[in-house]
Structure formats: C-alpha cells, structure tokens
Design a protein around this nucleic acid. Structure first.
Lengths: 192, 192
DNA sequence: TTGAGTATTGAATGATCGTTCAATATAACG
DNA sequence: CGTTATATTGAACGATCATTCAATACTCAA
C-alpha cells in the first residue's frame, strides 16, 4: 500500500497562515511558502491544489482558531472581562514590541476583490460569527448584572468589533498610537 | 528648445491614484497603469521614476486632496455637522450602490511593510493631520456651544477617526453592514 | 531650413510569478 | 525480493512582472 505523508498537514497550514497573515495573498509568493513550510512546490500543489485554495484554507483555519480561542475566554473570564481581554491582548502585543499583524480576516477584506466569492463568504461568515460571540457575551454579562441592561447587545457587539478592528489598524500604522489604549477605555464605557 | 509634455501630469497622477486606491500597490500592475493612464511605460518612467515613487506621489496627492476637502467642509457646515458629514458621505456611497474603496491611506496601512519608511511616514503624517482637523472641528463646536464642553477633543477626534475607519472597512466587507449607519449614530452620541 | 534637445514609443529585457511533470524515493503487499 | 501505488523532488514551463532603451517624433532657436 502507499506511502504516508511525510509532513503534518496542519502544521504546514499554520505556517502558511502566518505568512499570508503577515504579508497578504499577493505579498506572499509561492517561493516564500516553499521556504517557510519546508515543502517543495509539487508537494504543496499535491496537498492543497493551488495558492488560491491554500489561502482559503488558511483563512478558514484562522476563522476556526479565532472562534475557539474566544470560546475559551468565555470559560476563564467573566463576560465583561472576556470582551475587554480582546483589547488587552492587542495592547500586550504592541507593548511587547512584537509586530502586530492585525486580524487576518480584516487584512483580507482590503485585498479581496468583490468577485472573489469564496473569500468574500469566509470573511462575511467570520465577521458575523465574531459579532455573535461578542453579542452572547454581552447578554451573559447582562444576566449576571455585570453589564447594564439598557445596552443593545447586537449594536454594541458591532461597535466593539469595529473599535477592535480600528485599534488593530492603528497599531499597524503606529505601534504606540494612543487610540489603541483608548479603545479599551471606550469599550469599558460602553459596557457600564 | 525642447518639446513640452503631451499629457497633464496631474490628471495622470489622478488616474494612477484611483487605480492604486481600488486595487492596492501589488494589485495594480504597470500594464494596468499603462492602460488606465493612456501613457506608455517609458513615459511613465520618464515622468515618475518608477512604480514605487509613483505610488508615493499618489499617496501624497490623496493626503493633500483629503486635507483640502475637509477644509471645505469647515466652510459649508457647522463644526458638528462637518464631522457627521464624513459619515454621511460614506453612507451615501454605499446606498448609491457604487463600490466604496475605503480610505486610500488606511488601505495602504495593511499593504505597507514596516521597513518602507517613505510610505510609513506619509501614512503617519496623514493620520495625524486628519486627527488634528477633526480635533479642531470639535474645539470650534465647543466654542459655538454645539458640542458639550466636557468631551476631550483629542481623544474624541481619534475615536471618530477610528469609527470612520472601521465603518469603511465594514463597508468593503459587506456593503449593507449595519455598523456603517450605526457608526454615524455613535458619533452623534459622542458629540452630545 | 536645419540642428539641437527633449518627449514619446513600444518592443525587448531579465526577474519573478504560479504551476506542472517526469524522475525518483519510499512503504506495504504478495 | 519484486511489484504496486503513492509521495516527494526540483528543474523547467509559460505568463506576467517592473523596467530599459534604441529608434522615432516633435518643437523651437538659430
């Protein structure tokens, strides 16, 4: 019988994801992917069809990863703190000196052409999913009495999502932009 | 004596700007620029040095254009309405069905590599400039009594700028995303 | 009218892009 | 051990990339 794959498909996907995340689809060449995954071109094409499809897989993986890690927050923090921790993570990133490459999904928004249906769908699905997760956290916070009952969960979820997106964008433009830390304070205000 | 240029350098710059604005630096090939400006490769290189430099000129032109048009708002609207009109323009864009390509500067944030000093500088300068313009509008609004005196002009200016950036990002992801219109309402709240 | 000087032209350049494929290596089965 | 089936290899492909440059077109001063 055949020969088993020599590489861990998931680890390779992870390395490719990081590359696309940092430099985007067009900014990441097949040569880059070959260098960073350690695979040969042929192996990549055998395993992932082509660059476009590999990119979509990475985007989907990121979506899944994000959903998972937000689910974990729900178990380690109170609802309100879980939301604020999203900002804290970003703040810690920029304070740590490491380059923040923002949100892979949001980065892809600007690069994706409108006619690119597959990517557009993943993006819209991810946005909706994160919005829902935040919304549920707000609702839970309201049940616990941690968040005022008069805040509109849906609208506020979108506002938090928007603030976070903006903060990550600013972080990329200027690591120490005041808005990054201010965005957390704003979020705090919206939830009290 | 020599032969005068056959093309209007400023119009060509404008067409190139539109191309880079829509599709980004990497997404716009020299072939595209040749097609859309009507110039030949050689003429482009003679006039603008190379693609990178042309891009920087476009970015600078956009910065200047933005500053100018925001200056005009100051004369046609009250300070508070001038700020809100920034959101109205975006809302009108997406309602009109036309594709909104966001803010050229913000789009470039994600594509620019950190070591690209020239582009990074233009971006940071533009961000600071717009922030200042909004800040001044807020201060004027406070003098007129249109905006409460207890809002922090600097911090609120950054918040408005962030909201607008997020709204434009969302517009690109989903033309009818609720956040686009909500961002205007939020801005209204922050200014009352 | 002519010569000097510059703008324009667009084919050609080498580099890099994404992708393919014939050759080779490996592992399980008979 | 030999056969079979699949994985891996990496050189090579055509397309496209940004860029160049010799040839040509043009204007103006002389």
């Amino acid at each position: 019988m055949p020969w088993e794959k020599q590489f861990d498909e998931d680890k390779v996907l992870d390395k490719a994801m990081r590359a696309f995340w940092q430099r985007g689809f067009k900014g990441t060449s097949m040569k880059d992917l070959v260098a960073e995954t350690g695979l040969n071109p042929g192996s990549i094409y055998a395993a992932f069809k082509d660059k476009e499809h590999l990119f979509q897989l990475c985007l989907a993986k990121y979506e899944q990863q994000t959903t998972q890690s937000m689910g974990k927050l729900e178990n380690t923090y109170s609802p309100r703190d879980a939301i604020l921790s999203l900002f804290d993570t970003l703040i810690a990133e920029v304070d740590g000196g490491g380059e923040s490459c923002g949100c892979f999904i949001m980065n892809s928004v600007l690069e994706a052409r409108p006619e690119d249906d597959e990517v557009t769908q993943i993006i819209q699905r991810s946005l909706a999913q994160v919005e829902t997760l935040i919304c549920n956290l707000i609702r839970k916070g309201q049940e616990v009495g941690e968040i005022p009952a008069d805040v509109d969960p849906d609208q506020t979820a979108r506002l938090i999502q928007g603030l976070l997106a903006a903060a990550r964008l600013m972080a990329r433009a200027k690591r120490d932009h005041p808005f990054i830390k201010e965005s957390r304070e704003h979020a705090e205000n919206f939830l009290s």
